[in-house]
Design a protein around this nucleic acid. Structure first.
Length: 284
DNA sequence: AAAAGGACCTGGTGGC
DNA sequence: TGCCACCAGGTCCTTT
């Protein structure tokens, strides 16, 4: 499940292969992704030079000077650098074919991703315009989180997973960050103190940085551009560990459903909010 | 305005 | 063994 660290891992992997390279064309085998790949896609990108491969949240942005290719990997998407002649496999929905004989191959069994071309100023693109700050940028501070969470009743975990508040934090890292911060995932966002918010921001940044350093997390199908899994999976402290022992206190990790997503937490280490006491907030 | 819920999709898994 | 229901996940859209 590509979240920010997985997307960044892929970005770092593919950029050296593609920077300055000219796109010969594109082969669209299956246009029915989350949003359809437009008929004009191949024509739009052919002849363009990839200047840089950037990232905004979980979107990859191929800057081609006169426009951008925008790729989202959804939940099961991967990108590989492959010889253009290598026969495609099932779910290899799209190839960007380069003049130097390699292709960038997009595979996405669940077809939740997107591949688009846009000539609009990239920040104004409808999919990017409303994204919150990058969690690893200086814009994402405890103060910022505190201000935006004010008066919000929404559970903090749902709040930080909403890309309008901060971009790139998915289910795995939201769980891990809140554990690290010692904050209960169901705590209403508006009830957190500035200090709580500072802890959460710090934790999000630490979790993401560590995960990037380990090449992301592989639960089922994530691999980098060469097909290698990520190793952060081994560092997961709560995600997917319901019933197992907390690494800090030995207590039992619990599972809770929030916003139709599985949440995992240690009821001892994450006491900022107690479902029984309703609104108990302990100071940090 | 904010929150909740549905839709999209397929592979893997667990139950019978 | 086969069949089936169900779950996982990120985003966007609609409804409340």
């Amino acid at each position: 499940m590509p979240e920010l660290p997985e997307v960044e891992t892929i970005r770092r992997g593919i950029e050296p292969h593609l920077r300055g390279r000219i796109i010969r064309g594109a082969i669209v085998r299956e246009p029915r992704l989350r949003r359809p790949v437009p008929d004009s896609f191949a024509e739009s990108v052919s002849g363009k030079t990839v200047q840089t491969v950037g990232r905004r949240g979980k979107y990859l942005l191929f800057d081609c000077a006169c426009g951008h290719i925008l790729i989202h990997l959804g939940m099961s998407g991967t990108l590989r650098i492959a010889p253009a002649k290598l026969p495609p496999q099932k779910h290899d929905h799209l190839d960007l074919v380069f003049r130097h004989g390699v292709c960038l191959r997009y595979r996405d069994p669940r077809r939740f991703g997107s591949v688009l071309w846009t000539q609009a100023p990239i920040r104004e693109h409808p999919l990017l315009a409303n994204l919150g700050p990058e969690p690893l940028s200086n814009d994402f501070t405890g103060k910022f989180l505190y201000a935006s969470a004010k008066k919000r009743q929404q559970a903090i975990k749902i709040f930080i997973m909403d890309s309008r508040n901060v971009t790139g934090v998915g289910n795995i890292y939201a769980n891990e960050a809140l554990f690290l911060a010692g904050i209960h995932p169901a705590c209403p966002a508006g009830q957190l103190s500035l200090q709580h918010c500072r802890r959460i921001v710090k934790a999000i940044r630490k979790v993401l940085r560590t995960a990037i350093a380990q090449g992301g997390s592989t639960l089922r199908d994530f691999t980098d551009h060469e097909g290698n899994p990520g190793y952060f999976t081994q560092s997961l402290q709560v995600y997917g560990r319901a019933g197992e022992a907390c690494v800090q206190c030995g207590g039992k990790i619990q599972r809770l459903e929030l916003g139709q997503r599985a949440s995992y937490f240690c009821p001892v280490c994450q006491q900022s909010y107690s479902l029984r006491n309703d609104k108990k907030i302990t100071s940090p």
